[in-house]
Amino acid sequence: MNTIDIDTFIHNQRSRDFWNTGLLLIFSMVFLGSVTVAGSALGKSPSLIDIVLPAGLTAMSGIFLFRQWRVLMTTRHHYRDMSLPTATALQRLCESTTRRLREARLLMAAVLFGMVPVFVLAAAQQVANGKMSVGDAASFLLLVSVATLTVLGVMRHRIRNQLEPQLASLTALQEQMD
């Protein structure tokens, strides 16, 4: 192995594993902390800022926690599959890509048709009960719209630029192997 130093490589792997696990722990703590804060804010008579800040922090730390967990778990899964015979590995990869594509589309639909109506109804109810002003409700819905559009944009990008081309090339490769 004349181009890569194995000692350096092993050292890098050790520190990478250490940081991945450390980040997972940090995000877990932030997530739990923010859930506690959000929970206690909901127990009082909350203003918009009382809800939005902890909820935002909870959502963000939750996303990072999930991402970090995926980094650890999918990497392990991904590399474990690599030791299978090529045809089998290819078939498994095709199946998992199809599943991920389906999940991504379902998530998009869930965000669009599930979360958005819930938020709109909740805001309308708060306004009707006099707990929230129309201005506050409008800002809240604006925030929800921006968050929803961001999530949908990311998901759409992932589907169009990653999952669909990946599945197409995997299918072509599988045809070559058949």
């Binding site: 490589f9 792997q13 990497t75 474990r80 599959d81 690599m82 030791s83 015979p85 590995a89």
Partner: peptide, 28 residues
């Protein structure tokens, strides 16, 4: 090398090391 590194713990000796490494290298 990264793929081999991650696959080392899953090696059970069912295939020879060279077959195992060929598979990982090809798939990666």
């Amino acid at each position: 090398l990264l793929a081999v590194w991650h696959a080392v713990p899953s090696y059970r000796g069912a295939a020879s090391p060279s077959t195992f490494i060929y598979r990982i290298a090809q798939n990666t």
